[in-house]
Simulated scan of single mutants.
Amino acid sequence: MTAPFRFPRFFVTSPSPCPYLPGKQERKVFTELNGVHAAELNDALGRIGFRRSQSVAYRPSCAGCTACVSVRVVTPDFQPNATQRKLVKRHADLEVTPCRPWATDEQYQLLRGYLATRHPGGGMARMDEEDFADMVEHSPVNSFLLEYREPARFGRRGKLIGACLTDRQADGLSMIYSFFDAGGADRPGLGTFIILDHILKAREAGLPYVYLGYWVKGSQRMAYKVRYRPLEILGPTGWRPLDERELTHI
């Protein structure tokens, strides 16, 4: 007998400094994902702008600010530009392997290097091995970790240079968190390639969207998300195509 669906209870966090816009306060609304209907609930909440972190679904609920907007790539209509095509070709030799969401020391060391290079003062900079394991392994939905490795040589497994924790939802792939060797001069554009690879994989699987999380208007850190077209953003009336006029500030 199927367990009855229980309507989730939502909670609101206390305001804290916004990590993206100076002088702003951040607040989130969240609910727990548990039980046999966790995946269904996560799918439904994902379509209205929620993101998953471990066993919690959340979205911004900031007083007087709507800068954070959910964005997703429309995979059937995606056409890579010239730079993106070059990156796909450049990194075509990488070995890409979907793994079960189980944290390894190799992944953690890659994450540490990524955070030290890209986000040395960020909130995740103090993440230890246990925190990383919690992020990867505590998922009540269909999650996997894509590993990106250099080609094997002399019978030895190639070096891990990229990874992404990803949820497979009913209508697409949701990129939860990606990290990579940000200091490798011989592998430029790895972060872009990881996104492109997700878009192409979703399209091959017949999934219409890749969810990229939040685009924060006015934040240069999030400006990269609008490079993947066509892109839809979530507004008060639902999902709609991104208007080019909305990018004039970048």
Rank of each mutant, 00 (worst) to 15 (best):
K89L: 15
E129C: 12
P80Y: 09
G121I: 01
P188K: 07
Y20M: 09
S70R: 01
G23M: 11
R153Y: 04
N81V: 12
T66A: 05
T237C: 09
A39E: 08
R59G: 01
R227N: 07
K217M: 05
A92I: 13
H198Q: 15
R227W: 00
R112I: 08
L207G: 07
E244Q: 11
Q107F: 09
G206K: 14
F78E: 02
D43P: 14
I48Y: 14
A38D: 03
R156W: 09
R59Y: 00
E137I: 07
F78P: 01
D134H: 14
T2H: 14
L21K: 00
D128N: 15
T237Y: 07
D105L: 15
C65I: 00
R227A: 06
D131N: 15
R27Y: 04
L173T: 01
L33V: 06
A125D: 04
K217A: 01
Q107K: 11
H91D: 05
T66R: 00
F7D: 06
A152L: 02
S53W: 09
L212I: 08
K28I: 10
I176M: 03
F5P: 03
P208S: 13
G122K: 01
G113L: 13
G158N: 05
A205L: 13
E246A: 07
S178W: 06
P76H: 06
V36D: 14
F193V: 02
P17E: 05
A67C: 06
L94C: 03
R149Y: 13
H37Q: 14
H37M: 12
P22S: 11
T237N: 10
F193Y: 12
G158Y: 03
L231V: 11
L190C: 09
M222A: 03
E244D: 14
E26S: 13
P101Y: 06
D167H: 01
L231H: 08
L33D: 01
N142P: 09
G213M: 06
W239T: 04
R187H: 12
Y211R: 07
P80M: 11
R6Q: 13
R100H: 11
C68I: 00
P140Y: 04
G183F: 09
N142L: 15
D243I: 07
P22M: 08
G23I: 10
